[in-house]
Design a protein around this nucleic acid. Structure first.
Lengths: 345, 345
DNA sequence: CTGTTAGCGCATTCAA
DNA sequence: TTGAATGCGCTAACAG
């Protein structure tokens, strides 16, 4: 209806009485072209605000300047932070970011990746669903020469670079901190056994206990399925009502920690006086609940930036062979839920 | 490096001894083509898994099957919920969603929209930044025949369809609820004067007071700039330390309400016994804090779906003239922070 | 330094 | 019912 037709190279050429290819080259200041021609063309292009037809350019060059990103859940503090970083870096380098989510369902992940594969994307950033194991749909990208970078939730089975957080180390630091604050009986509410991050954090927990030579019991480890607030509540109840109740709890996630704190508060336990709590992820909410929740910052924004950098490098080099792993360090964030002493801050 | 070259129509034609155009038509079951030819071509295409080169198709048809979406902030419960809905609907209709954010900075919004305008997107969904008033960068889309739909944070100045939430009505309902629960002196912590949603909610607040014939004072209305937890805390302090302290507070947002509750709890006020609190937006956190926060659900997912539907309709009709406004109803979510009676639930 | 030519993969008009 | 020819807008090899 409205659709103004755009100025093309041909139009400029006709108007200026020179050939299309000269115009094309002039616009990119090709060394072969005379300075005055360059000026002529550029001036004309500018004043008539010529905009190249990207559709044509991309078709010609067989690339799109788009990259895809798939996460399990979009409405999620950590993942949206990662996306934020990815957008920032992508835009910096002249790329747009196409976003989709799998809802932790393999079928949806396959659909989303297929939708992106067919020429709408030059490469893919993905954090896989809990159901993804083989990853044939990911391999399809590599087969077509489109690089893939995995981040956060990854599988070793896929030959792609990976950007992850040092979960084990972060968990270790969290538990070590509880220990230093004087907590001696520390429980852990963990995530599913088949999810790598959860297992890493659990490892970190166990290590820290071992190094400190503290008590450790299988019955102090509870396993969440959905990583919900309610699970935090319920497992804390189990722990506190058990034979040998802990005086510190390290939770796989801030949300779970919130549930844990709710149980404790409702039942008259003082936090951190009687029970110290550590979360993980440092969601925004951890700084606005009371008592404020100690947590482990995962630097999601940086993860988005790093993953995107890696991917764009590969895209530019046409490289689909790289398989390096980048491990980002976490940062311990101490707040009221775990601080007994006033030694720090 | 790896890059398998794709099968093209030409390849199929050569292999089958027929012309490219016949292959092209056969694949889309053009009525002119003989059934057996169709079958022949389709079978060949399938068994050699032919995939059309979308780059070429799009170039030819001058469209991308991508739509763009720009929000002020990605790491934000409401906006990420909207995005989630937009992705879902877009994917359903065979479109991909390109996402960007403005950080509430006009310059960034212009950059993001320009990046999308140049042939990488068939239409735009946008929630404008606080700094956006003229919106020339948005008009550029319309001039190029690319439809735009505004959602949530909108301006009337731009001739596009709008999808908004009935903020006034939602706010009214929230305050009315406080009144029904017996709160008689209700204050409001609002957002910036130049942001439409904030003003609508404030209107709703005032209306509800007027209808009920309750006290109302300018000094019961406090204006946030950043909509932060800290502002909620500070303004609540001002309110409670003032001459005529309220016994109910309606906060522009759950986050602000959290700050409000923090002040009250720290200073020994019982919630809701002494002071009732209402938030707005129904963020996830409102159901996991204690006391659980009453709020107003804005149906962000549905907003994403509706906006996308509108946009895709316009794209399909080549329509950039439509300017209808869709207003979604809110839903009152009553939790502990405002419930005195046990009459409900 | 510049123009000519060719072609990317596909859709479509015009002939046959 | 099919094929040949054309062009979308741009780039690049080649020739002058």
């Amino acid at each position: 209806m409205n659709e103004k037709k755009k100025l093309t190279l041909k139009d400029i050429g006709r108007e200026l009485g020179i050939s299309v290819s000269t115009v094309s080259r002039a616009l990119k200041e090709h060394p072969d072209i005379a300075q005055e021609t360059i000026k002529l063309v550029k001036d004309y292009a500018e004043s008539n605000n010529y905009v190249p037809n990207l559709l044509a350019v991309n078709f010609r060059k067989n690339r799109t300047f788009n990259i895809g990103l798939i996460v399990p859940e979009l409405v999620h503090h950590f993942f949206s932070t990662v996306i934020s970083g990815a957008i920032s870096e992508a835009n910096n380098q002249g790329y747009n970011l196409m976003v989709s989510q799998s809802n932790d369902i393999l079928k949806d992940e396959v659909l989303a990746s297929r939708a992106m594969l067919n020429s709408s994307v030059d490469g893919l950033l993905i954090s896989i669903s809990n159901e993804t194991h083989e990853g044939k749909h990911i391999l399809e990208f590599l087969e077509k020469g489109k690089p893939v970078v995995q981040f956060d939730k990854i599988t070793e089975k896929l030959p792609t670079p990976k950007v992850i957080v040092d979960d084990k180390d972060g968990a270790s630091a969290a538990v070590k901190h509880l220990i230093e604050e004087g907590f001696t009986k520390i429980a852990h509410i963990r995530g599913r056994e088949d999810v790598k991050n959860a297992s890493e954090r659990c490892e970190g927990y166990k290590n820290a206990l071992k190094v400190a030579g503290l008590e450790n019991h299988d019955y102090w480890i509870k396993t969440c399925i959905k990583i919900s607030e309610q699970e935090g509540y319920d497992f804390t109840k189990e722990l506190m009502e058990g034979e040998n109740p802990p005086n510190g709890i390290f939770c796989i996630t801030d949300l779970v920690a919130l549930g844990s704190m709710r149980y404790l508060k409702e039942n008259g336990y003082a936090i951190p006086k009687e029970v110290g709590i550590m979360g993980f992820s440092n969601w925004m909410l951890s700084s606005v609940v009371s008592p404020r929740l100690s947590s482990v910052e995962q630097h999601g924004f940086q993860m988005g930036v790093e993953s995107t950098k890696l991917l764009l490098e590969m895209i530019k080099k046409q490289d689909v062979e790289s398989i390096q792993t980048v491990e980002l360090k976490t940062e311990l964030i101490v707040r009221e839920s775990s601080r007994m002493s006033n030694s720090e801050m």
